[in-house]
Write a protein that binds this DNA or RNA. Structure first.
Lengths: 135, 135
DNA sequence: ATCACCTATGTGTTAATTGCACATATAGTA
DNA sequence: TACTATATGTGCAATTAACACATAGGTGAT
């Protein structure tokens, strides 16, 4: 860290839960683990795509990195599953800390949803209707 | 030095209107120009903070960069205003292209708001209530 | 058996974003 | 003179994230 004033932050960051803000991979993963819909990375990526919170194609690579970060924070624990066919799966389980993290995300996302909805309303009052693109 | 219009992707990007996704500076600026609430960068930054769409403190530096990008795309036009006291202001005006850009943003933001609200609902059904943090 | 393919987990590279520090300038005030 | 507020801008480094690549087990086709 050689920032000019002992600074350690660079890009987007504005709170405890601001990471992966746009991609929404972390809340997707936490939710899927909470439901029990999926347990390992590859499957979580597939389910996250069906959940559709991320707006983008959720790639396994991003999910793996997210899971390792969550594990480092104690939000999930993992174990190898060598049973069944195909390569071994690293199966993840949500911890209590992970459940709290998800609850925090829900608060952030709830506020954001309201802010965004309010903006749409303000624009509507200005006579600006949403334009849906075909590209 | 390639301009903003021809930039290639590396980071977050998933559509034509996905830039500055997390900060929401571009839609804030376009909206404020549409209402006529502000006309130059410094003032736009102040008004954007009151609008509160960005969730962060909107810094003038980010607004200036945003405005130059918008001008390169033909969404705004600018002119120097040397009247009045203090340093000269670069006053921006929204173009028809800018209005369309805002309408596109409204569509994106509207969809996002619904997705986020749905996620909050799903979590509520799981018994996960939002946790509000004190900061 | 070899190949192609799917599943599954990871790393490397590189472009884009952005907060903060810094630079510059005008005008009013102490 | 010095300081403050307004106003516009640049430079840099931390962070993010898409895409490519690497590795490996298992299955079915040629």
């Amino acid at each position: 860290m050689r920032g000019r004033g002992g600074r350690q932050l660079g890009g987007a960051r504005y709170g405890q839960l601001a990471q992966q803000l746009s991609r929404m991979i972390e809340p997707s993963v936490l939710y899927l683990l909470a439901t029990g819909a999926a347990g390992h990375g590859y499957q979580l990526a597939e389910q996250a795509n069906q959940l559709g919170l991320a707006e983008t194609i959720v790639e396994p690579a991003a999910v793996y990195r997210c899971l390792r970060g969550l594990e480092a924070d104690g939000c999930v624990v993992s174990a190898w599953d060598t049973a069944g066919s195909g390569p071994a799966r690293r199966v993840y389980q949500l911890t209590e800390a992970g459940r709290q993290r998800l609850a925090g995300w829900v608060a952030v996302i709830n506020q954001r949803a309201q802010r965004l909805a309010n903006f749409v309303k303000l624009c509507g009052e200005l006579g600006i209707a949403p334009t849906f693109f075909e590209q």
